[in-house]
Design a protein around this nucleic acid. Structure first.
Length: 818
RNA sequence: GCCGGGGUGGCGGAAUCGGCAGACGCGACGGACUUAAAAUCCGUUGGCCGCAAGGCCGUGUGGGUUCAAGUCCCACCCUCGGCACCA
């Protein structure tokens, strides 16, 4: 006999054990059913599974379970993103080894994930900090190196003084702070390893064939920042300088006749060469100051433009004008050519600069109302070209291309595409990461570690104190090695890889997590990948999600896979806030610990609450009261399910609001909501059905067979969201194990379409009456019924009926005038 | 500054091919049960007027289109997110 009372804790532990024992969720590769690969971004091993993890995982587990019931062979794996700074910082603070700290956390978090009752196939678990995983990071690195996608170069790089390591551009927020710790990022000139993400810049802009939120695609497009323009050459003639030109990049080549000065970045290689003797001191001082300033100081909008004259002049090849060459820190060394042309008449920034340094303003685009006598601001809009030689009188938009062609013919410029995207800086001066498999030999230079020597394992006994250099550099046993080429003494690369490398390809490893010959078995990857449905936070738009796309394209070009996009469909959940509607934080004291609630109310209630709280992509606020409400509902469902049906009549009228119709309508609603990730309305639909069942029981309007069918459908629909609860009720209602191997219920469209409808009667747009009519009522019939209504007549008497608007199945609007 | 999301009861949110605004839940109020409380169950719950029947107002603000606007158009305000001296 079933329990009389719903005891969540007891049944959850019972079923979790049973499912585990039976390997209910083991996914096999060779299965005739169509595949469905559902994946949630794997968690970083920070210590505890917080409510945000639950918010990310519960709905995605629900959808994966739904797909499984729909007849898909579902792969829904889980793993741990376990390399990274927090492990090292915790180790430094508390004297625990990062490895122990991490593995202990995994132990705890795995248990917490399991308490949720998800359908993960744990046999495929991935832990990125283990050599069996990270050896393949090293393998990828070697392949990338061979193909020129991994390279080492000296460059001004982002440096986080708190993390004591360099950062990729993506890991510096737009306010110039470190993505991890919020410290202001500074610059250092260092030799570092890069992955050539820019090689795929154009392809990364193309989202054909992927169903991603428009928001994320826009964010990536903004980040990549394609800009079409012209690289124009300005003549340089400084005695003793071999370079005879300065190249600038411009998107406004139509204004090139209005150039009155040129500006190069302080870091530009020409600065030292072209500066005249009498300007040297001033220029050097300016360059020094620029080097010392942070990105925030340098790039702050609205800040007054400063610069310094080099003493040199360049020639505008379009006009033969000689214009002064300036150095200014608003020109960025890494973008375009690191040099820009100054057109004060048509660029506000140049206008301000020219005012400050007394440079001439030459208008070359005339507004429709004509040029003013003296310009007070730049005219940046379109107009008619003037002072532009052969282009005079033409519209600037129409002749932009002609100017570019003209430049190309004269070999003084060429059309170019420039991207904002920079190559991915992947080396880190820290311990807890994948060692970069490179060797420095005094004789042979940079030599890659032979593949057969992989993995290069992290030495356990390192002193991982942050010094600004990798801790591995102080580990003699690690550093000292022999050159694979000449067998002489050599040193290992001691930097480790950015942990985003780990998460760039893990999605493929799940397909064949123990494959020994490559990062993944190509046959298995081809069978399972790309991912059918990926879910995770939007904060990863320009980091993980961009890197993973890059890796996929690179892996494709290595011949490992045939597709170029890792995640076919993407859904971003929102953020779960505290009870006070504020972001959860320890300092606010509003952090919710899911374990406490799971212990008392059960995982099923917590799962359901998180889905019910609002649209998934919208996020929501935690509410203990709200959770109580869910718990109350589950108890009501429990009570309904175990009732003695002999108290119901053998047969009952099957009217419009019969339980049979409600059941079919609910199946339809729940199915469609699950397809569209509308978990909140899915739960609401099941609640409405529950309420209807309560009424049907009270007024005995349902017969036994219909009641049983309704209960059966309800339990099946509950199975994805409340897996333990549904399993228990499935058994309690006389069915065989397991509810999770059942087929998803279907609906009969005939039972969903209403036979009887409520026709709303309006007079001048105001609702005055409602009539219950057959759905197939004729227009004439409906109109005469409407006009005959007492309530309508009291609003139409003494007035003249002008028109009657009839919307079949919905309403009648009687328009009267008086 | 530019791009994108969003402003609906006391609260979270439903409803957008223009057609009953407020589903569902929370909270609140009233009632039942109880010695009492909790739990549970039943009822009421956008505002205003009214004994009632009923009426008027109401989806950020101001205009507009329409028989009909939360939904469409114009202007604006607030808010969240992204990009931002990117040439």
């Amino acid at each position: 006999m079933p329990e009389q009372k719903y005891n969540p804790r007891e049944i959850e532990l019972k079923w979790q054990e049973r499912w585990d024992k039976d390997s209910l969720y083991r996914t096999v590769d060779n299965d005739p059913r169509p595949k469905w690969y559902a994946l949630t971004m794997f968690p970083y091993t920070s210590g505890d599974l917080h409510i945000g993890h639950w918010y990310a995982m519960a709905p995605s587990d629900t959808q994966a379970r739904y797909k499984r019931m729909q007849g898909y062979n579902v792969l829904y794996p889980m793993g741990f993103d376990s390399f990274g700074l927090p492990a090292e910082n915790a180790a430094i603070k508390r004297g625990i080894h990062p490895q122990k700290w991490t593995m202990d956390n995994i132990e705890r978090m795995r248990k917490q994930v399991k308490s949720m009752g998800p359908m993960h196939d744990w046999s495929r678990e991935i832990i990125t900090c283990l050599p069996e995983y990270y050896r393949w990071n090293q393998w990828f690195f070697l392949q990338f190196y061979k193909k020129g996608i991994a390279y080492r170069t000296k460059a001004p790089v982002n440096w986080c003084p708190s993390c004591q390591t360099v950062l990729a551009n993506e890991q510096v927020l737009s306010d110039g702070t470190c993505e991890r710790c919020g410290t202001t990022v500074t610059h250092k000139e260092l030799a570092q390893w890069f992955f050539k993400t820019t090689k795929y810049a154009e392809e990364l802009l193309n989202f054909e064939g992927v169903e991603w939120p428009e928001r994320i695609k826009t964010m990536q497009r903004n980040w990549i920042g394609r800009s079409d323009g012209v690289e124009a050459s300005f003549g340089l003639d400084v005695p003793g300088v071999t370079e005879k030109e300065v190249r600038v990049f411009t998107t406004r080549v139509d204004t090139i006749f209005g150039v009155t000065f040129l500006v190069i970045a302080p870091e530009h290689p020409l600065v030292a060469k072209v500066t005249t003797k009498e300007r040297t001191a001033k220029v050097q001082e300016y360059v020094e100051k620029a080097r010392r300033s942070t990105d925030i100081e340098r790039l702050a909008t609205g800040r007054e433009k400063t610069g310094v004259f080099t003493g040199a002049y360049v020639t505008n090849n379009f006009t033969n004008d000689r214009v002064p060459l300036f150095v200014a820190d608003y020109v960025l060394p890494g973008y375009g050519t690191g040099a820009v042309m100054g057109v004060p008449a048509h660029d506000q920034r140049d206008f301000d600069f020219s005012k400050k340094y007394g440079l001439p303003i030459k208008a070359v685009i005339a507004p429709p109302e004509g040029l003013p006598k003296a310009m007070t601001e730049a005219y940046e809009d379109d107009g008619i070209m003037v002072n532009s030689g052969q282009f005079n009188g033409l519209s600037n938009t129409a002749s932009k291309d002609a100017v570019a062609k003209f430049a190309e013919e004269r070999r003084i410029g060429k059309r170019t595409v420039t991207y904002r995207l920079r190559d991915w800086l992947v080396s880190r001066q820290r311990y807890w990461g994948t060692p970069i498999p490179m060797i420095y030999c005094a004789k042979c230079g940079i030599v890659p570690v032979p593949e057969s020597d992989l993995p290069i394992e992290l030495p356990y006994d390192a002193q991982f104190k942050p010094t600004g250099e990798s801790p591995l550099a102080y580990h003699e046993g690690f550093v000292n090695t022999t050159c694979p080429t000449c067998h002489g003494k050599a040193r290992r690369e001691t930097d480790t890889m950015d942990t985003f490398v780990d998460s760039s390809w893990y999605q493929f490893r799940y397909s064949s997590h123990d494959y020994q010959k490559a990062p993944f078995d190509p046959a298995k990857a081809a069978q399972w990948c790309p991912i059918s449905q990926y879910t995770g936070g939007a904060e990863h738009a320009n980091m993980h999600l961009l890197y993973a796309r890059f890796f996929t394209k690179a892996a494709r070009d290595l011949g490992l896979i045939t597709f170029g996009e890792p995640f076919k469909r993407l859904f971003n959940q929102g953020i779960i806030l505290g009870e006070d509607h504020e972001k959860m934080s320890k300092s606010r004291g509003n952090v919710v610990n899911p374990d406490e609630f799971v212990d008392v109310m059960g995982a099923d209630a917590v799962r359901t609450f998180l889905m019910f709280v609002g649209p998934w992509d919208h996020g929501g606020s935690w509410s203990s009261e709200g959770l109580n409400g869910i718990s109350r509902w589950l108890n009501r469902v429990w009570d309904l399910c175990i009732r003695d049906t002999s108290r119901l009549p053998e047969s009952a009228p099957s009217g419009e609001n019969s339980l049979l119709r409600i059941t079919h309508k609910t199946i339809k609603r729940v199915t469609e909501d699950l397809d569209k990730f509308r978990f909140n309305t899915m739960v609401a639909a099941m609640m409405e059905m529950t309420n209807a069942m309560g009424r049907a029981w009270e007024d005995k309007s349902a017969d036994r067979a219909t009641w049983k069918k309704a209960i059966e459908a309800l339990v099946l629909m509950l199975a994805p969201s409340t897996p333990h609860f549904a399993e228990e009720l499935w058994e309690a209602t006389g069915h065989g194990y397991s509810v999770h191997n059942q087929k998803w219920p279907t609906w009969d469209e005939n039972l969903v379409i209403d036979k009887q409808i409520t026709l709303v009667i309006q007079v001048n747009g105001k609702v005055r009456d409602r009539l219950e009519v057959p759905a197939n009522v004729s227009e004439d019939e409906a109109k005469s019924m409407a006009l005959a209504s007492d309530k309508v007549m009291s609003h139409t008497k003494d007035l003249q009926v002008k028109t009657i608007v009839y919307v079949p199945g919905r309403l009648i609007n009687i328009v009267v005038v008086g």
